[in-house]
Amino acid sequence: MLETAFLTTAAVLVVLAIAVLYRAIKGPTMQDRVIAVNVLGTNTVVILALLAVALDSPSFLDIALVYALLNFLLAVAISKFTVKRGEVI
């Protein structure tokens, strides 16, 4: 019962991710896209945590942690690129 609830929540969050995707594709500015992908990353972390509970495998939480770290890295890299085009590293 509780597993179904968690899985349903995860499914709803994935559908919401598709809605956020509209902003990532449409833009219009690059900042909109960066924030949209950031939201998608946070969404992914939450979905992973839900899956970890629903599928009863705590090792998924490690992936969620990696994602939380990478999400930050991704946003910083893209932001730095847009502010000063060409100097990522």
Partner: peptide, 17 residues
């Protein structure tokens, strides 16, 4: 191209899920 890279990052998130 920059938008394509950002959306490709989103694709990667979905595939990992």
């Amino acid at each position: 191209v920059l938008s394509a890279i950002i959306i490709f990052g989103a694709y990667s998130l979905g595939m990992a899920l």
